[in-house]
Amino acid sequence: MKKFSVFIVIIFSAIVYLFAQTGTVDIKASVQRGKKVYTQYCLACHQADGGGVPRMNPPLQKTEYVLGDKKRLINIVLKGSNDPIEINGEEYVNPMASHAHLSDQQIADVLTFVRNSFGNKASGITPAEVKQARAKK
């Protein structure tokens, strides 16, 4: 029993270590900074638990947009959206404003935070990726 749990701990640490290494960002620090950005700029609409507001603002919990294509995700924050987006069979009537006024670092941090909170687990987003998306327009 004891050996077994030691084994689990080792495997788990190895996974965490590998995860931290594959991204070029320091995920933990980015998540911490991202939480602040989220609280100031996103929480009002998407709520503290990322659950959103039924029918008005969508959740950020394991959605296709949050976990899927990074470019699409970055673009939603940069450009906003006012087209009917369907998330788990629901549409949301509010518009999402553009957040292009945030810096590349802030957007990278907030998205890294979102992708690693509310039950989500995904790789981080780098300021370079945001910069690239911004340049394309």
Binding site: Y41, P95, A97, S98, H101
Partner: peptide
């Protein structure tokens, strides 16, 4: 929300 040029955009 309040008839901004860009709806719900800060500033």
């Amino acid at each position: 929300n309040v008839c901004q040029e860009q709806d719900r955009q800060q500033g």
